[in-house]
Design a protein around this nucleic acid. Structure first.
Lengths: 132, 132
DNA sequence: TCATATATATGATAAACACATATAGAAGAT
DNA sequence: ATCTTCTATATGTGTTTATCATATATATGA
């Protein structure tokens, strides 16, 4: 668990900096995860976010770009311009160790949140089995 | 599913009025569910919310009271004062048919959300199994 | 060269949430 | 009696998040 873990202390994450009690800012852990796989840039990350079933097929660019910048401000990612590859210049992001720690924190929180949703659904289904 | 269901049309719920793409407003479906079990009032409902693992043991009273009033404005619940039972007067709420429809809508949405969280966790665990 | 796709960014507004505080009746303690 | 605590509802304010609109600029294909 995240609680009391030393990874949190090492990177000075408050317990818990991921507000997974709510589901808000779910784009943040998704971005962190994608960046844990490989460096990428905003426009590409936006596409990848689709697979997590956000209500709109494309999540708002504003969300993505601002989240990335905010993560950089917190030193969870670092960026540099890529002017070499095709198309307009891309700002490519890489995950930092602190960013990885934050991802782990998110994963813990999301696990808890999943349990809460499951509990809700269990009670709901018990109450309404069959007869909606 | 909620999409295109006639229950949604009957009660003029937009598809989908429950913003379950995000986890925001999770108190709302919880309140609707508790009221589907039996009429209740704010202070009591606040206690029951504990069991869904909100980060704080007691969810903010402001949230609960304002959510209940907003649900009443939308005709999803109706309230009346209970001055008879012990203690200060309670505003007791009852679920309406529209409120029940909204609860069903939420349940659908929360199911989808659970899937998204599961997908995240699955990918996360594949990526980091064992070696955090 | 004109439209479209790629790519990043920000201003303005709206929604959601958190924190503080106010009010007041009931119940129990001293 | 009155003082404190518990129950109960309510709102004002500020902050954080999210949405909507729009701006800019390069590259690509028709």
């Amino acid at each position: 668990m995240f609680e009391g873990s030393n990874i949190a202390k090492k990177y000075k994450l408050k317990e818990c900096e991921c507000p997974s009690g709510k589901m808000t800012r779910f784009v943040e852990p998704c971005l962190l995860f994608f960046l844990s796989q490989q460096p990428s840039y905003g426009y590409e990350l936006m596409d990848k976010l689709d697979q997590f079933g956000f209500q709109k097929s494309k999540p708002d660019p504003a969300m993505v770009y601002r989240t990335l910048r905010s993560l950089e401000k917190e030193k969870c990612v670092v960026s540099k311009w890529d002017t070499k590859s095709a198309g307009p210049a891309k700002r490519t992001y890489e995950l930092t160790p602190k960013g990885l720690a934050l991802l782990h924190a998110w994963a813990d929180g999301i696990g808890l949140r999943k349990q809460a949703l499951e509990k809700f659904l269990k009670l709901y289904q018990e109450r309404f089995k069959g007869r909606k």
